[in-house]
Amino acid sequence: MAATEGQLPSTQITTEYLMSYVAPLDPPVPIDDSLLIVNVRPGGWVKGPKIDGQFVAPGADWLRIMPSGAMRLDVRGLIETDDGAHIYISYNGIIKSTPEVMERLNNGDVLTDRDIPYFIAAPTFQTASEQYGWLNDIQTINKMTEIQFGPEGYVKYDVFLVR
């Protein structure tokens, strides 16, 4: 076996746009220096070629702040589609930013993926709906495109199917 064989990929990953969504957020509740809990308020929107809806209660984000300053997402939410189906979404991910950018976020600034370039998560879905049952069988990734903390807080993601 050549030394380079183990260093080269033997497959390719591709992505396909699935949807975008905006989840309205309450201001973060600090538990201690290593944990914030952010409630997801009802509303917002979910839009994609095969899905339209909004977030309904319950939902929240448990945000762990690691010693390195990186943050680990643990998010659970509920989507209600425009045709009445319920879809559970859960994901873990990583946010890597600078203290200065996080201060801007905590001060209520609207930040984008240019401000926080590494804000990536891996959602999975669960539903009993026949129309949306295909979501049960896929892995997705999402990337934050906008976020704001404060009374009018929200997060916006683009979501991609991974193949």
Rank of each mutant, 00 (worst) to 15 (best):
F55L: 10
R163A: 10
L63K: 15
M144G: 04
D158S: 12
R64H: 15
D115I: 11
N106K: 14
P123Y: 05
Q126W: 11
Q12R: 13
D61Q: 04
A70R: 05
G108I: 06
R64S: 12
G44P: 10
V159E: 09
Q131M: 02
P24C: 10
F119H: 11
K50H: 09
D82S: 02
M144Q: 10
S10T: 15
F160Y: 15
P24G: 10
G108N: 09
G59K: 07
E146W: 13
A128C: 04
I51K: 04
T14K: 06
S90E: 11
I120K: 10
N92S: 01
T4H: 09
I95C: 11
D83H: 03
S10K: 15
A3Q: 15
E146C: 03
M102F: 06
T81H: 01
K143Y: 03
L135F: 08
I94C: 05
Y118M: 11
E146S: 09
F149T: 05
P67M: 13
P24L: 03
L111G: 02
P49N: 08
D82G: 08
V159R: 00
K96D: 13
I141D: 00
V155I: 08
S97R: 13
I65E: 13
D52P: 00
T4P: 02
P30I: 07
V155P: 07
K143L: 04
F125K: 06
S90K: 03
I51P: 02
I31R: 14
S90A: 12
T4R: 10
T127C: 10
L73G: 03
R41W: 08
I79G: 10
P67D: 14
I147A: 11
F55Y: 05
M19E: 09
L63S: 01
W134R: 04
F149G: 02
E130P: 00
D52Q: 12
P30F: 11
P117M: 12
G44T: 15
E152W: 01
P117L: 10
I94R: 07
R41K: 15
I89C: 03
Y157T: 10
D82C: 00
V75I: 13
S97P: 08
T140I: 03
V75K: 01
T127R: 07
T11K: 11
I37H: 09
F125M: 06
E103Q: 06
M1Q: 11
E146V: 08
E152D: 10
V46A: 09
Y91Q: 02
P123C: 02
E100N: 04
N92F: 01
E80S: 05
T112S: 15
V101C: 00
A121P: 00
T145W: 09
T14F: 07
Y88S: 12
L63Y: 06
A121T: 01
L35A: 04
V101R: 05
E152S: 11
Q54H: 13
